[in-house]
Design a binder for these strands. Structure first.
Length: 784
DNA sequence: GTTTCGCATCTTTTT
DNA sequence: GATGCGAAAC
């Protein structure tokens, strides 16, 4: 058999070669998930499946790109014609082709979260509602929730539950806002993130023969990466694509319920459970060997996740030998945390010769990056911050992009509002409000309302409007014919934006100008890049066939319009690597799917990690725990966890307690680090005075002063009985009653697994889980 | 019509 | 600490 199959273990190979029918791969962290996915696709190509018949939905565009590259290494240039990308970007591509069927222009705009919030704010204001009660971003999440559950404004009004909730929250007009919002998006020729899913669903539902069937036939093999993070709507679309009479149901999904961290966005592990129900012929493979991390790290991760109430059965194990324990860094202030992490990085770099790209600092909230940046800069260590306000969210960039969007789609009201009077050109807020009122009254776009006879403004304003309109009309005419980069450069000058920025010689002003120029560069690069698939001369004349001409063209679409749709859907992870060797700083969410030799997981404090937003709700806490699980499993060799006793948050210094998650790691896996900064400054001195209880081996990590912890967890902790003695593994057999330090008394129902890695299923008496699977080599159990 | 400043508000994670 | 909003000054 081909050599690439030899690089797989038995389970991996079985998954890769099961090409027909529905397949579910449950893949623990570091278990070679990407490898399985790429080899499976390569395998399909080797067997003669055409690349454009294979659809792969990933979480980031970068993941898709890397996958393509790896496949290319196996099968060559054909890989470039694969359909691979995020749900949102692939769907946007399909929508672009089919937009007219939904009453949208094919160059529709995509509203990001800011745009959406701003539209909502305008609607709320126009409706004269109390902005304290009707908070735009809260309404946005409410509408997003509705869309993700396929609830249209009409359905919302008929939905007793939703309406009742709104009345209870004293916000009965949400449904009206929702209705207006949808109308406004439609007349603006704009879709928000949820629309990219919602509208595609509508498209498929309402055009089963002309549209849906075409795609069902086209995509003979469909793959989904990070399946645990798909939401209801994404799954509903997937199901329509895959499940129909006569379908071969060639759908291959890869996921890990323990790494599901997007419940707040509607993702649910129910999808995995539903998947088993929806596809009776499903074959399931479990990848349980972790090739990434050392034993201490894997064990700590297993212990932490065992505290969650609901999980699929699996046991992650590794044969990597330990060299280093997990380090626990206890700090007094967030500044000390920043300093010690930076110092430790320097030390690790020297002692183990780590390049910067082997190192990552992870945190729960983006706001935490600051302190680390300060201290890395102090030590001259190069770093890069991912997330937070991305490049495309900066004001000057949004302004420029606003002009570009308007040239491509003048109906786009958000773009229009943004740029109509910036730089100022004599069009006042009052005039804009009037425009908006006319637009609302006759349900036309504001762009069209400029010409309406009903528009009652001063002659001066009318003149300003006409000048502005002519300027945009000119661009609009040329957008289809002229090279994107040339037109964009002209728009930058003619709009007056360039002069406005040039006038500002402050350092910030200069950097704003640089940013805008960077957009120009990006457009040139985008326009000049050889267009991914179709144009790369496919070997032996295998271009994507004509049954799907437009989409084939869309693949290599280098227009301004294509550029704009692309950038809105970029994720942090997609940001281009500048080729420099730098330390990575990012949120734990963004780190999903990545790995580093040395990882610092920071800010392990109650109300921060787990977040105060999740503390009330047990499901929320479980999600935070999965997030922590994701964080620690990013590390291959060195894992350092830090927390601080106090921290600046929301503008003032606050006390904080160590995170409950720390107690869930067994003491044998970590060591408390004596301050590097000992004797340096008051914080360090104070730190030394703190009495520190060293963890006792064998007892669940109780590193911190116990009085600091008001413990709340599913199973109430029980007192350690005098004379508790851990029984040897051999004594744990089915039928015996055991005592567990966390879960109390329980009965062993079964024991399985290899001799050195036995797993027992135990029913605990006072526990809200029917049963738990306990990895015996880590557990502290006494036979009673 | 435009700019600036002070005040209030809201702070998670992301496509 | 960042952002939005309204009022006052230009």
């Amino acid at each position: 058999m081909s050599s690439y199959l030899d690089e797989l273990n038995d389970v991996q190979r079985a998954a890769v070669t099961t090409t027909e029918g529905p397949v579910l791969v449950i893949a623990g962290p570091g278990s070679g998930k990407t490898r399985v996915l790429t080899y499976r696709i390569a395998h399909l190509l080797q067997q003669g499946v055409a690349p454009w018949e294979i659809l792969t939905l990933t979480f980031t565009n970068k993941a898709a790109r890397e996958m393509k590259e790896r496949i290319e290494n196996v099968v060559g240039a054909r890989a470039q014609s694969l359909w691979a990308g995020t749900f949102h970007s692939i769907f946007a591509r399909i929508l672009r082709t089919e937009a007219s069927k939904l009453g949208f222009p094919s160059s529709f705009s995509i509203y990001d979260t800011d745009d959406t919030t701003s539209v909502l704010r305008a609607i709320i204001k126009e409706m004269s509602l109390d902005t304290n009660v009707y908070n735009a971003s809260a309404i946005r999440s409410r509408i997003s929730l509705a869309k993700s559950n396929l609830i249209s404004p009409k359905a919302y009004r008929e939905n007793a539950d939703m309406m009742q909730q709104d009345r209870a929250a004293k916000r009965p007009y949400i449904v009206d806002i929702y209705e207006k919002y949808v109308a406004r998006c439609q007349r603006s020729g704009a879709m928000d993130f949820d629309d990219l899913l919602f509208q595609l669903y509508r498209l498929f539902r309402d055009n089963p023969d002309q549209v849906l069937e075409k795609y069902q036939k086209k995509f003979r093999y469909i793959h989904v990466d990070e399946f645990q993070d798909t939401n209801f709507l994404q799954y509903a679309i997937l199901r329509r694509l895959v499940k129909y009479p006569g379908s071969p149901e060639n759908v291959f999904v890869v996921g890990d319920d323990a790494q599901s961290i997007y419940a707040f966005r509607g993702a649910t592990i129910d999808n995995i459970l539903d998947f088993e129900k929806d596809y009776p012929l499903l074959k399931t493979f479990k990848l349980e060997q972790n090739y990434r991390s050392t034993h201490h790290i894997v064990s700590a991760a297993n212990e932490v996740i065992s505290f969650n109430r609901r999980q699929l059965n699996k046991t992650i194990w590794t044969d990597k030998v330990d060299r280093h324990k997990i380090k626990l860094l206890r700090c007094v202030t967030d500044d000390e945390e920043g300093r010690r992490v930076a110092d430790l990085i320097l030390e690790q770099k020297h002692r183990y010769h780590l390049p910067n790209h082997d190192i990552a600092i992870l945190y729960r909230t983006n706001a935490q990056s600051r302190k680390f940046e300060e201290h890395l800069r102090r030590l001259n260590l190069p770093y890069r911050v991912f997330g937070g306000t991305s490049f495309y969210q900066r004001k000057e960039v949004k302004d420029f992009v606003g002009y570009l969007r308007l040239a491509v789609n003048p109906l786009d009201e958000e773009a229009l509002r943004r740029v109509i009077n910036f730089p100022t050109r004599g069009i006042s807020d009052a005039t804009v409000d009037k425009l908006s009122a006319v637009a609302g009254a006759s349900n036309i776009a504001m762009w069209e309302a400029m010409l309406s006879p009903q528009l009652d403004v001063t002659d001066r304003a009318r003149k300003s409007l006409a000048t502005f309109r002519h300027m945009v009309e000119d661009w609009q005419k040329r957008v289809a014919s002229e090279p994107a980069s040339r037109l964009a450069a002209e728009i930058l000058r003619k709009s007056g934006l360039f002069d406005a920025l040039k006038g500002d010689t402050s350092p910030e002003g200069i950097s704003r100008l640089e940013n805008v120029n960077a957009v120009l560069d990006a457009i040139s690069e985008f326009a000049d890049s050889p267009g991914l698939p179709a144009e790369a001369p496919a070997p032996a004349g295998v271009a994507e066939p004509g049954i799907f001409p437009q989409a084939g063209a869309a693949v290599s679409d280098r227009s301004l319009s294509a550029y704009l749709q692309t950038i809105t859907l970029l994720t942090d992870a997609d940001e281009k690597n500048d080729g420099n060797d730098h330390i990575t700083l990012m949120s734990v969410h963004s780190a999903k799917g990545l790995e580093y030799k040395s990882v610092f997981v920071t800010g392990l404090e109650e109300n921060l990690f787990p977040s105060f937003m999740s503390m009330e709700d047990p499901n929320g806490l479980d999600e935070e725990r999965r997030l922590f699980y994701v964080a620690i499993t990013r590390a291959k060799e060195f894992l350092t966890i830090s927390f601080s006793k106090s921290r600046y948050r929301f503008g003032s210094l606050r006390e904080s307690n160590p995170s409950r998650f720390l107690d869930e790691i067994g003491g044998q896996h970590y060591e408390l680090l004596g301050g590097i900064g000992s004797g340096r400054g008051p914080a360090a001195a104070q730190n030394q005075q703190q009495p520190v209880t060293q963890p006792r081996a064998g007892v669940s990590g109780n590193f911190a002063n116990p009085r600091m912890r008001a413990v709340t967890r599913p199973a109430a902790p029980i007192a350690i009985p005098a004379g508790f003695k851990v029984s040897p593994v051999e004594d744990i057999v089915p039928g015996v009653t055991v005592l567990h330090l966390k879960f109390g008394e329980g009965k062993v129902t079964s024991v399985e697994g290899p001799k050195d890695n036995k797993v027992a299923t135990i029913q605990f008496k006072n526990d809200d889980m029917p049963e738990r699977r306990i990895v015996l080599k880590f557990a502290k159990l006494q036979v009673m």
